[in-house]
Each structure stands twice: as C-alpha cells, then as structure tokens.
C-alpha cells in the first residue's frame, strides 16, 4: 500500500515564460519495457533540478531524449523554446551549442589531449575565435575546474576525478545556458564525489546556468539541486526540495532517504 505522491505530475505547470525545458506527457518504451510513461517536467531559468530514480528507471533515457540523442515514442519536448522533434540537423546542432552535457562515463576522446578535447566543441560548432582567444578560453575553463596544468595531458593519464573535472570543463567551454549531468558522481570515491558536487554548484552560479542532474547519489543531489523530481515507474512520482521529500512518508519516496 503506497500513499499518494506529493504532487501529481498533471498538476505541474508546463507553460512558463522563464522555462528552459518543458516536457509534456513523454512516453518511451524498449520492447515490453516502458521506461517513461506520461512524464512531464519543467526546468526554469537558473534552476538546478535533480531527477532521482533507481538504476534502469529511465533517467539517462530522459536526458538523451531531451538532447535529441533518442526519440521519444510520444509527448513533446521543448528545449530553449524549440520543439526538439521538429528540428532539422542544423537547427539541432545550433540548439546543442547552447547546452552542455556531462556524460556518465565522461566521454573524453581518448585519442586527443585535454586541450584538443576542449577545443573540439568550439571547432565543431564553428565558434568564431582566434587561436589566442581559443587558448585563453581553454585555460579559463580549466582554471575554473582547477586543472590548468593538465592542458597537454592525455585522458589516459588522468585520475577518475580529474577526468570528471575535464569533462565538466568541456561542457562549460561553450558558455551553455543549460547543463545536463548524467550521474556526475558515479564511480568516484565520496570525497572526490563531494568535490565534484561542490564544483557543479559553483560553476552553475559562476556561469549562470540551469542544470538537470540525473543521479541516485543523495549527497550529490542534496548539494546541487534546488528541486528534486522522483522518477518512479516511468512517471514524475513526486517532487519537492530535499528537505520536503525527506519528510515524506510514502514508502517509494522514503526508500531513497533510508
């Protein structure tokens, strides 16, 4: 027997002038497995929202649908005011240049140095910069994550925490309006994880970004999120601040805080 969730998803306001992501009634299935079922979400400008759910609950699928790496079966996704499903490749690339994505596995290009990894999005999105400006930008974001000295290192020479910081620097290099974090602390020890969570918060404030954080690490979520959305059974089961959800007696919500 489960108690009612805090807020039913249908009550979430989906039209907002300052919203940067609006998702309405999203469905995604893989064969017989439904991972998203009537999921809705709104992310407002400057807000950090965490999507909390068990492994395999569809959190990563959700952000891949938002960024256009996967197509949802049904529902609508508006990213920075544009309907993702109606964009052609060029428009999709243009909108992707305004967002950053920190992958769970960091996704640093093994064959490139740290500098080349950071320059890659600048070159590919045709950002007009002289090579001196490009160098300065690379060093600026590396300094912000505390790794300016690693500029000429290869990804294989970096520790797990350093890789995560470099991956974060790569997401920041285009001055994104929104950053997607896919399990940012997975595979890191608690101390390094805490450092990364702190850095996410600091960088959000410094670069004035909104963030959608996918995680099941409660420490990370507590440190980084203004609002938490609980993705349970493919739907937005409950939402609220960390403190609000912690006090909730619904067993499905409570299990994450035990």
């Amino acid at each position: 027997m489960t108690t009612a969730p805090i807020i039913e998803q249908r009550s979430i306001p989906v039209v907002s002038t300052d919203s940067v992501i609006e998702i309405e009634h999203l469905y995604k299935t893989f064969g017989d497995n439904t991972v998203l079922a009537d999921f809705s979400l709104v992310l407002r400008k400057g807000e950090n929202v965490a999507v909390l759910g068990k492994s395999g609950s569809g959190k990563s699928v959700l952000i891949k649908c938002i960024i256009g790496l996967m197509r949802a079966d049904k529902g609508s996704i508006r990213l920075l005011g544009q309907d993702i499903d109606n964009l052609d490749h060029q428009e999709l690339d243009e909108i992707r240049s305004r967002v950053g994505f920190l992958f769970q596995s960091n996704a640093l290009y093994d064959s490139m140095t740290v500098r080349e990894n950071l320059e890659f999005p600048l070159r590919r999105h045709w950002i007009k910069m002289t090579s001196a400006e490009q160098d300065a930008k690379v060093l600026e974001v590396l300094s912000n994550v505390g790794l300016a000295h690693a500029v000429d290192m290869m990804p294989a020479e970096l520790s797990g925490g350093m890789r995560k910081r470099i991956a974060l620097a790569r997401t920041l290099i285009l001055d994104p309006e929104i950053i997607f974090y896919d399990e940012p602390t997975t595979g890191l020890d608690p101390i390094t994880g805490k450092g990364i969570s702190k850095l996410i918060r600091e960088m959000g404030e410094k670069y004035n970004t909104s963030a959608l954080i996918i995680s099941h690490d409660m420490n990370c979520i507590r440190m980084t999120a203004d609002r938490i959305i609980m993705l349970i059974d493919g739907t937005c089961y409950a939402q609220g601040s960390y403190e609000e959800l912690k006090l909730n007696n619904d067993p499905k919500v409570k299990q994450f805080f035990e």
Partner: peptide, 9 residues
Amino acid sequence: QIDAMEVSG
C-alpha cells in the same frame, strides 16, 4: 564518445 561527438555538433 560517439554521443558526445553528436552533442558537439
């Protein structure tokens, strides 16, 4: 890395 490439335009 292939997804990251796609996101990078």
